[in-house]
Nucleic acid binder design. Structure first.
Lengths: 338, 338
DNA sequence: TATGGAGGGTTATCCGGTTCAGAGAGGGAG
DNA sequence: CTCCCTCTCTGAACCGGATAACCCTCCATA
């Protein structure tokens, strides 16, 4: 049951290991006849290059890494990462690159995982997600000198290549739309405040509302429970908002339920917008107006850039497509008075 | 920027490579004093064993694989896989095992991925999920002689070790509960009919209803759209069911929305049960009665078994905990007449 | 006929770590 | 004082490929 090596092929074909190596790698140095014979034998006995042996010769590991540092309960619920991964995979699979995945509990652990992977030559590069302000991972990765694509805002990515989607535009479009519908008190139920993109959205939101609508922001941990709690608080306040923009779909759905529970009719008394569209946003009643992004494409672009980096090309920062507002039943004209 | 090797450590410590190897692996053959000195140097210069070099000596790859063959849009929505993965990760991380992930488009491709990974010595074993009847992947993996843990029913896992949760019990509990509430026409909106566990549930469902309730089964592809369509059809039929059991939460939520849209009140006119609990099931109104399973634990058990297999131990089939019915607001006494 | 060069193949070496067979040194027993 | 054994450490081979350098043969050309 031993796996065949090029030595096995060589002895069968009656040539040296080197001839086999040349033949199988499409390099000159063997005749076409010999090459064909060797390839036939390799196919027949099901030979595959031992990745360890290849890697040992300074070759690439043909593998990139991704460590995720969010609690499992959130990872399971948010379609974002799975969609991102499937987009990344699409590109990697074409180049027979593999994706090494690890779920970690802290940024410290995450840095350690990167150090280990890199030190062990397991990976050729990594993706960095969920960027924080003065993120220690950035410094660490810069120090390692490893190819990295940061999936997040370039302002905090240091010297690492970043890919991000412009949040400001989407926020402005959303606020503009709500204001046009007559909304004058708009709330934003945001995600984790330490994430860069949360702050970016916060600022864009505040700025977009400036002068045209009152605004308020509540931070949560992305879970449905906190989304529900935030909604309950917002809707109980004397000057409750007539529109709420949620930072993910699970909170938006939770918010919708809370509204219905409190007899606040959507969209008559309250308009709801979800950031990031998903089947989930479409199956509830009313279907949610959402900020649609092609997340798999986002992942694919990131993967292309990482592979380019690994190939030694320089990769400029890349601004991916902004999210687009998809109006559905959960938003409507503002209704004044209860 | 070159990564340090044991040769570097050896020259610094003034000993041979071999002494370093022994020292760092805790093997006898060096004095404690030398060992301590070597370890100190290794720590100082941040040495890590090159995984490729290790693997080349017939050592384990310290890595296991998982190929997922469901379309991206479903992967993103279903919390199941992310939760499973995070459970698997928990165990792997403790043993510094990595998880190699790939999303593929077909079973054929999946088998190929396994062959490649195994042939290239990238992995020590794999998980097999979404078992089909007369699944070609089982034969293929048996042929390869690679350690495999099948996450699925043992009836179709051939000679491979299986881990599964007993679906029959959960189905019986659910049907019993609904019948006790007075339901006499119960429908099941099932997932992909080619999956073994779908059929297992189908049969258990039919059997449990036998003699106590009329039953009907509709198969879908797990998406919210098909769940909605199935629900619409069921609720439009002249002898519509008074209870529906869905095979995942996204379809259950979609079904709930359809019911509300059709002015079928839940739970007064229709009871709804979701298979697999999730935050999603809890945030909608009414919250969904669900079959709760600890999926991360399921994944963890699978990982433990795969590691045991890799270590050469024999692993008997393991029946994990069955799902438990968690009654919530979406189920209630059957209401006769419209 | 000597010369050059391309084509086809080989030998030797390396990658970084593991493992096996010894080789000295030191100590205890006879 | 010699013999033997243990402890500590080393040289060499090996894992499966990649690669540099060289060698032989055959053919065309001067």
């Amino acid at each position: 049951m031993k796996r065949p090596t090029i030595a096995d092929i060589a002895s069968r074909a009656g040539v040296s290991k080197v001839a086999v190596s040349y033949a199988l790698n499409g390099q000159p140095g063997v005749s076409e006849a010999t090459r064909a014979r060797i390839i036939a034998i390799a196919d027949e006995i099901g030979w595959r290059p031992n990745s360890a042996a290849r890697a040992l010769n300074g070759a690439r590991a043909n593998c990139v890494g991704l460590a995720l540092c969010r609690p499992a309960r959130i990872l399971g619920v948010e379609p974002f990462f799975m969609e991102l991964i499937s987009g990344i995979e699409g590109v990697l699979a074409d180049r027979s690159y593999a994706l090494l995945l690890q779920v970690v509990a802290s940024h410290q652990q995450e840095s350690e995982v990167y150090r280990h992977w890199w030190g062990e030559s397991r990976i050729d590069g990594v993706f960095l997600v969920d960027l924080h302000y003065s993120d220690s991972r950035v410094t660490e990765l810069e120090r390692l000198g490893m190819p990295v694509v940061v999936i997040g805002h370039p302002s905090e990515s240091g010297s690492l290549s970043a890919i991000w989607s412009e949040e400001g535009e989407a926020v402005r479009e959303t606020v503009g739309y709500l204001v046009a519908l007559g909304h004058r008190r708009i709330a934003r139920v945001a995600g984790l405040p330490e994430l860069v993109h949360t702050t970016v959205r916060d600022q864009a939101f505040a700025q977009a509302c400036e002068g045209v609508a009152e605004h308020m922001i509540v931070h949560t941990d992305y879970t449905g429970e906190e989304g529900a709690r935030a909604t309950r608080r917002l809707l109980s306040s004397p000057d409750r908002p007539t529109a709420i923009v949620y930072d993910n779909d699970i909170m938006a759905v939770a918010g919708l339920s809370v509204a219905q529970e409190m007899r606040v009719e959507v969209p008559r008394d309250l308009s709801i917008v979800a950031w990031d569209d998903s089947p989930l946003a479409q199956v509830v009643r009313p279907p949610l107006t959402a900020l649609t992004r092609d997340i798999p494409a986002y992942g694919a672009h990131a993967a292309q850039r990482l592979l380019a980096l690994i190939a030694g090309q320089s990769v400029p920062p890349f601004e991916d497509q902004a999210a687009i507002l998809t109006p559905r039943g959960s938003t409507g004209p503002a209704h004044t008075g209860a």
